[in-house]
């Protein structure tokens, strides 16, 4: 099978997965979840009130139609209105995406460069004390709750030392910068641990390959081997790991955004959880699943293009 038919087949596979995602969302939110009218109207609602609200929220229609509605929203991006704020959901998402990205994108880039550099450094000294101590520090960093980083970071750096804004946000290019610095810093600290460990494993997998031994045997400098041979080959796995995380950048970080009052998508999700705002939750689930599916197709295709060893079945 050649690469084009593989790509087409891979693209066609998106359809059953997307229908499956809609099915799971439908089962979770429309079938199994407790009656949302009960949550919205409280315990003492009358039967007629509930019936009216059900009609208003279009919950009285047959299940099949409700499922089709979810599927349709995946393609039209028309998710209706939020139950709690009555805003157009697609509008809310559009407004929330930028603030989320102002935090996650720089954080992602900084932590990527930092983690790759550290992992190259430790692979250079593999097995030595410096390698082991850095790996230990990474594991230790990973073992602390992300909430603790946020709480102590906000308390110490923003409140006591006054180096950063405690919380808040202003839109517009230079204005938002003071508000996102500390969130970015916390994000970087949170992701450096797992990233370094992952990249180190990838790089070490390559270091023990035969071609590296050959390169060393022909007398190349260790740094040339690292950058020209090892890193180049490790890039395949690194790229797949990185690309698949891009959709989560758009989603933002639930916890960081809520603690620093950044009006991003994470905050929207959090509010929706607290107010049982099903349409918003469904919309965010659909969108992030869609982003994930698209990016995993991109990853798979990139993988097969970059690495000829991947045999196409």
């Amino acid at each position: 099978m050649n690469i084009y038919s593989y790509i087409i087949r891979r693209l066609l596979y998106v359809i059953p997965v997307l229908l499956g995602v809609c099915l799971i969302i439908f089962i979770l939110f429309n079938v199994l979840s407790p009656d949302p009218t009960l949550i919205m109207l409280g315990k003492h609602a009358s039967k007629t009130q509930m019936m009216e609200l059900r009609a208003e929220l279009k919950l009285d229609r047959p299940w099949f139609i409700q499922y089709i509605d979810i599927v349709r929203s995946t393609f039209t991006f028309d998710f209706g209105r939020s139950w709690s704020t009555k805003q157009e959901i697609s509008e809310m998402i559009k407004n929330g995406a930028i603030p989320s990205l102002t935090v996650t994108l720089p954080a992602f880039l900084v932590s990527f460069v930092l983690s790759i550099s550290i992992s190259l450094f430790v692979s250079f000294y593999r097995g030595k004390i410096i390698d082991r101590s850095i790996v230990f520090v990474c594991v230790a960093l990973m073992s602390i709750s992300s909430l603790a980083y946020i709480l102590y970071g906000q308390m110490f750096f923003a409140f006591q030392l006054g180096w950063f804004e405690i919380s808040g946000y202003e839109s517009g290019f230079p204005d938002f910068i003071p508000y996102v610095l500390l969130p970015i810093l916390i994000w970087v600290v949170l992701s450096v641990g797992p990233d370094v460990r992952f990249y180190r494993t990838i790089i070490l997998d390559e270091v023990y390959q035969d071609y590296v031994r050959t390169a060393r045997a022909k007398g190349l400098a260790e740094s040339t081997i690292m950058f020209k041979h090892v890193l180049k080959n490790a890039m395949v796995s690194i790229i797949t790991y990185v690309v698949i995380r891009i959709p989560f950048l758009i989603l933002g970080s639930l916890l960081i955004e809520s603690f620093f009052s950044i009006p991003g998508l994470g905050g929207i999700i959090l509010n929706a959880i607290n107010s049982s705002d099903f349409p918003v939750l469904k919309a965010m689930t659909v969108l992030s699943a869609l982003a994930y599916i698209i990016f995993s197709v991109i990853t798979d295709v990139l993988y097969t293009i970059v690495d000829p060893r991947v045999r196409l079945k």
């Binding site: 499956g20 979840s33 407790p34 999700i269 959880i273 049982s276 689930t285 992030s288 699943a289």
Partner: peptide, 22 residues
Amino acid sequence: VWFYTTFNSIPYIMLLVAITFI
């Protein structure tokens, strides 16, 4: 494979939230 690919596409935090709602 279809089932777990589908399941994996949904962010884990959303599934957690939905399940605790139920």
